[in-house]
Design a protein around this nucleic acid. Structure first.
Length: 580
RNA sequence: GCCAAGAUAGCUCAGCUGGUAGAGCAGCGCAUUCGUAAUGCGCAGGUCCUGGGUUCGAGUCCCAGUCUUGGCUCCA
């Protein structure tokens, strides 16, 4: 739920939904209506219809909607008794179901415009004249289960977008075009970053040389910062015996996301969907003292999880991915400090990648949560305290935690204002118990440590996808797969180009020579399309003066920079990022 | 998994009511030696997703399957 959603706009959209329902009823008098709310960028309505709605139908429905709008009909609210409501909607089974679920004593109201009456809490705009015929558009038809439950009947959902003015609608449509242009699947192909081969396995990512270069920069940065911030790095196996997953409990509560076992010497092994059991095996490998804690153990761990065939999406939703996982194991007394530290560290990393707009979502104990309330409350308090200390906006998600512990998720906003859930910091009371991990406390008793799971970027695949869209493929120099390209004006200057590229590489710049025989203009165009930050134009003057002429991706030009001077300059511009 | 749409050259796409496959870009070759977003000419490239069916004849129509895309509680 976006709090930016203005009340007026909400009324406008909800009213559009009613108008659309009326239009659909004109075409399909036998249509059964489900629900039709306002949503973030418009509205939808779910219908049970005698036939599939085709894209061509949308234009017809829009036409009918415009005719209704022109009538300038009032939206009239009527309070009805339960019996009356049941009579009005006697042919509308979904409405009857909704009515039957309304709590006793709650006021039941209907809204009527023109010849259409809907069960509705409201509010609505005054009349259809308040709805601009040039500020809405029906967008797509989609299947949607009644109440989102796949056991229920599949209804047809018609989506529309609606705004207060034509200009707002146009702005929105422009934004859609921009989103399309930045689509990481599009850019992944255009920039030759990665591919997916359905014939070799859906949801599995192949990192091409250029994508791999970016990943390498991300990983190097990630590793060095973790080491500097008190983490140790681990590597663990990709498979483990049933014993491991039975002990961890995953075969109980996570089995539907795990792949069928491999049989090795008649023993079942499972591909890992998570890294934590392996980390706990390392913990258990020796007796631990309170003096050893806290332990911060991180791993770029590649896991495999089953995703339903319909939900895979480019890099964002895959079946195999590398988590930037960490487990923090500490004493109860250390938990405040550790939580604050991990949060502070996460925010620093996000800022380094250019994400500054971050919100925290705090999930509390669900109905099936294990462990006593006091422990939960204490953990939640420390999460909250940390988020407050870092001045984060906090959104409470009451009852949204996993059964084994509360968590705080960070959602980041990208360049287009879209929110992505990335970081998760999660308490776990279950797994330490199941593995029976302990430490020897100062009083020589065996105590159970706290364990916190943390994925910072989430997964490298998903993070890369978000990064591509955030920058629209124009990575900042330190991340760009190719940072500079040397462009000889004619092949005659290729040798000088070779020399410049060599000098750049010696300074750690990812540089290439464009030695094709196209004209310089074509090479510049290619480099622009590849979104390479720096282009070095090399011709007779540059060669004679041992200089380069720089054209940046943003179109700025500076001619005849002495080579040595440029090398010093570019070295600073492409330098790998570090915190502080 | 379910609903809908789609699948034609490496990529983006065209191919009307069934008559035997085309463009641009990319690739390769030749020519061109060029100053800040596409030099010209030529060549090569396709089991039209797979399997059935209808038909004298299927990229096109029908059926089944595979995969892709957009959706699948933001609740009257």
């Amino acid at each position: 739920m976006e709090e930016t959603r203005k009340p007026v706009l909400l009324e406008v959209r909800h009213s559009f939904a009613h108008v659309m329902a009326e239009a659909v009823l004109q075409i399909f008098p036998q249509a059964k209506l489900a629900i039709g709310p306002a949503i973030d960028e418009g509205f939808y309505y779910d219908f049970d219809l005698p036939r599939a709605v085709a894209t061509e139908d949308l234009a017809v429905i829009e036409e009918k909607m415009r005719a209704i709008l022109a009538g300038n009909h009032r939206f009239t609210r009527t309070v009805v008794s339960r019996a009356e409501a049941e009579r009005v909607f006697k042919d509308q089974p979904y409405k009857l179901e909704l009515i039957s679920e309304l709590p006793e004593g709650e006021e039941i109201s209907t809204y009527t415009q023109d010849a259409f009456t809907d069960l509705c809490r409201g509010p609505h705009v005054k009349d259809t004249g308040a709805l601009r015929a040039d500020a809405f558009k029906l967008t797509t038809v989609a299947g949607a289960y009644w109440r989102g439950d796949e056991k229920n009947k599949m209804l047809q959902r018609i989506y529309g977008t609606a705004w207060e003015s034509k200009a707002d609608l146009e702005g929105y449509l422009k934004k859609l075009v921009e989103i399309e242009k930045r689509d990481h699947r599009r850019l992944g192909k255009d920039l030759d970053l990665y591919s997916i081969h359905e014939e070799a396995g859906a949801g599995l990512i192949y990192w091409h040389p250029k994508g791999a270069r970016v990943r390498l920069v991300i990983e190097d940065f990630w590793r060095s910062e973790h080491l500097k911030n008190g983490y140790e790095l681990l590597y663990t196996p990709h498979i483990g015996k049933s014993w491991l997953w039975e002990t961890s409990g995953h075969l109980g509560f996570y089995k539907q996301n795990m792949y069928a076992p491999l049989s090795i010497d008649d023993v079942d092994y499972f591909l890992k969907p998570m890294n934590c059991p392996f980390h706990l095996m390392i913990y258990k490998n020796q007796q631990r003292s309170y003096r050893d804690l806290p332990l911060r153990w991180a791993e770029l761990g590649t896991v495999y999880r089953y995703e339903k065939s319909g939900v895979m999406h480019g890099l964002l939703r895959v079946r195999g991915f590398t988590q930037d996982d960490a487990h923090i194991i500490c004493t109860p007394e250390q938990i405040d400090d550790e939580i604050l530290e991990v949060l502070r560290f996460s925010l620093k990393i996000w800022k380094a990648f250019g994400f500054n707009d971050i919100k925290a979502y705090l999930a509390t104990k669900p109905a099936d949560g294990i462990g006593d309330d006091a422990t939960w409350d204490k953990a939640i308090a420390s999460l909250k305290r940390a988020a407050e200390k870092e001045n984060l906006d906090i959104v409470m998600d009451e009852g949204g935690g996993a059964f084994y512990g509360p968590k705080i998720d960070l959602k980041i906003k990208d360049a287009l204002g879209r929110e992505w859930q990335m970081t998760t910091i999660q308490f776990d009371w279950n797994e330490p118990e199941r593995f029976g991990i302990t430490y020897v406390a100062a009083d020589n008793t065996q105590k159970r440590p706290f364990m916190v799971h943390r994925a910072l970027l989430g997964s490298l695949e998903r993070f890369f996808g978000v990064l591509i869209e955030h920058f629209g493929g124009a990575f900042p120099p330190w991340l760009a797969p190719v940072q500079a390209v040397a462009i000889p004006v004619t092949p005659a200057f290729a040798a000088y180009g070779e020399e410049v590229v060599r000098a750049l590489k010696a300074r750690g710049v990812r540089a290439e020579l464009d030695k094709g025989d196209e004209r310089m203009n074509a090479k510049i165009r290619n480099a622009q399309n590849q979104k390479i930050p720096f282009m070095l134009i090399l011709g007779e003057k540059e060669q004679a003066g041992r200089a380069v002429s720089l054209r940046t991706r943003s179109g700025e030009q500076k001619n005849m920079i002495p080579l040595e001077e440029y090398l010093t300059q570019v070295e600073a511009e492409v330098r790998p990022k570090t915190l502080e």
